[in-house]
Every structure is written in C-alpha cells, then in structure tokens.
C-alpha cells in the first residue's frame, strides 16, 4: 500500500460547556500521514494547539480499537465518518487526500447534552440499562453452565445483538434522535436467550418507558441507525422490540413490575 502525507482544513465544533453557545472553528493541519488513525490526526492538531498555548479540542476516546464505544465524532455529516461498520477510532486517514476539508461535530441529541466541544453526556444509556437491561441473577445462584443448552442459531443471534458498544451513533444518525436500535439490541439479546425469559415482558416495557423519559425521539423506520452502526446491529432488532413490546402490553403482564 502506497503511503502519503496530506494537508487538511478542519472545521471543528467548539463549545465551552453544556450551557454555552457553540460554534465552528477552523484549523489547518499539515503533513498528516495516510497511515494515521483519525484520532491520531486529532492528536496532531491538539499538540499543535497546546504548543500555541491554546486549549486542545475535548473529545471522548479510550480503547482506540473499536470496542469501548467511547469515541463519538460526527464527521462530514456522518456518525463515525464514512467507513461502513467502523468507529471513529478505526477510521484511518488513507480515506482522505491532500486539500480535503473535514467537518467534525459532536453527537447531536437533546438526550446527549454536550459536555465540552465534541464530548457528550451519554449516561441516559446507563439509565436505560438500569431500567431492566439485565437478568436478575445474584452471584452464586448459577447452575452448571451446560445444564442449559441453547440452540446455536439462537445463541448466535443473541450474540449479534449483544455486540452493541453503546456508542450512541444510532441516536446521532437518526433525524428523530431515537434510541430504538440501542434499546432493541439489548432487548433482543436477552429475549433470545432462555435465561432472559422470566423477566422478558416487564423488561421491554420498563426499558422503553425509560427511553421515553430520557427524551429520545420516536422511531419512524428511516434506517439511518442501522446504516451508521459501527457494529452492524440489524433493524430486525427493532422489529423484534416492537413485537416484544406489543406482546407484553397485550398480555397485560407487563404491569405489576
């Protein structure tokens, strides 16, 4: 693979805190290697800002291998940028060429208030999990693991839903800022497994209710969430979520939680 360097113009959203007004600020970066990751390019910019005595751009990131779900940039109008099934940290600069302009924004959703610049508050997701995204089993209660066979296809589907990294790209991509893909991934993961059966009905109702309380929008079947999900979480999960929800409401057993 041929490596090269490039000069870029970056338009980055700057915002002091959740209460202040934000605006774009334009920067030039030089000699960016095509081998760098996108965040390493931001590192270069930040080092430059520090050396000029300015405040670097605040952004969330941690594992830089696409699994922790912390990185969260809206790049040229797309959550996590242009690569399919890829987090911001795994996007590499060989995507860009000399002279390109890149616009970088935070996730935009009222349920994800901006903390500073590109970092947002996603604790709403934690509260949705706390509302029911678990199986109630205390430590020490378990029987031998192989007492409970699970059909392979079923297990594989549960796993596919469980690979959600909770990054929030689905919310950022959705014009309604809906969290349905996130919620459906967890509901599906647990509803597909026999272990999840006892709490299946109340789980879905409680999680949806918390989702609404947090101020996420409604799902209107646009599908941007699936298209931008770095882990390829399928829209089928939303269909399953809807079935689970309706089933739970009709059976009347969702109340009495």
């Amino acid at each position: 693979m041929q490596h090269y360097t490039m000069n870029l113009t970056l338009k980055v959203w700057r915002q002091k805190n959740s209460k202040s007004q934000g605006a774009f600020e334009t920067f030039q970066v030089k000699d960016i290697s095509s081998e760098m990751s996108f965040l390493e390019m931001i590192d270069v910019l930040n080092e430059q800002l520090v050396s000029e005595g300015k405040e670097p751009i605040a952004f969330d990131h941690d594992c830089r291998e696409g699994i922790c779900g912390m990185c969260s940039m809206y790049i040229n109008g797309r959550a996590h940028g242009p690569w399919h099934e890829t987090t911001t940290c795994q996007l590499h600069m060989r995507e860009y060429k000399n002279g390109d302009t890149i616009v970088i924004e935070p996730w935009r959703a009222s349920a994800f208030p901006v903390i500073k610049d590109l970092a947002v508050d996603r604790t709403a997701f934690d509260r949705i999990i706390a509302a029911g995204g678990y199986i109630s089993v205390n430590t020490g209660n378990a029987v031998d693991a192989n007492c409970l066979p699970v059909e392979k296809q079923q297990a594989d589907d549960a796993f596919a839903a469980a690979t959600c990294i909770g990054c929030g790209a689905c919310v950022a991509a959705c014009p309604n800022a809906s969290a349905m893909l996130f919620v459906s991934a967890k509901v599906s993961h647990l509803a597909l497994l026999p272990q999840g059966e006892p709490e299946r009905k109340k789980r879905v109702v409680n999680m949806i209710s918390q989702m609404d309380t947090e101020g996420f929008g409604s799902c209107t079947n646009i599908g941007a969430c699936e298209a931008e999900c770095p882990k390829g979480i399928s829209l089928e999960n939303i269909a399953r979520l809807n079935r689970e929800y309706i089933g739970s409401m009709l059976s009347g057993s969702a109340t009495g939680v």
């Binding site: 199986i135 378990a142 029987v143 031998d144 297990a155 549960a158 993961h189 272990q195």
Partner: peptide
C-alpha cells in the same frame, strides 16, 4: 468453573456447538 456458570446465567452469549452446549 463457577465463573462460567455465573456468566451464562447472566446471559453472556458464549460460542456454542450445534448441540447447544458451550
């Protein structure tokens, strides 16, 4: 061994064989 039991009970989707076992 208890760890595996605990995690399966929590719904951790470990890889399985066609017979449904781990």
């Amino acid at each position: 061994a208890n760890i595996i039991d605990q995690c399966v009970a929590q719904g951790v989707p470990f890889a399985r064989e066609y017979g449904g076992l781990l």
